[in-house]
Amino acid sequence: MEEKKHLLEQLHEIQNNDDKHYLPKEKVVELAKKHGYDLAQVYGVETFYTMYSTKPRGKHIIRICENQSCHMANSKKLIRHMEAILNISVGETTEDGFFTLELSSCLGMCSVSPAMMIDEVPYGNLTEDRIDEILATYKEDK
């Protein structure tokens, strides 16, 4: 049914298949050439939407919510805790390339706030201890 291929879906595909969960320049240029996109348009799109990254990211991406409901459930404190134990700031990747910490707009999990997602798995009712437990389970598969 498509009149045109959908650029957003194509970018998702590149990013999901990339080990470092980002949009490598050469892949994006290749995509633009193949489908006749203006490179500026593609760059405009990849920098507009928060789920895309133009920089390499870690193996697991932590998205923690800081909107109203989570904010009221003290998510700021959790973000600081997360930054402290991972030894990075929001937007950065740990030295071992294992975790990237990002903020997210509302994840729609306000009834179990504070909430976060690691890759595609949602977590709610977070506390500092709970975060330690969850991160430990990821470190085990390292």
Binding site: Q41, G44, F48, Y49
Partner: peptide
């Protein structure tokens, strides 16, 4: 015919014309 189009994290795409631009592969 019906299919799913996944967004990429932009609140503004809830506005209908921004959503349409987004499906067209533009900034929302």
């Amino acid at each position: 015919d019906l299919c799913i189009h996944t967004g990429a994290g932009a609140y503004i795409c809830g506005e209908e014309t921004a959503l349409i631009n987004s499906i067209e592969g533009k900034r929302g």
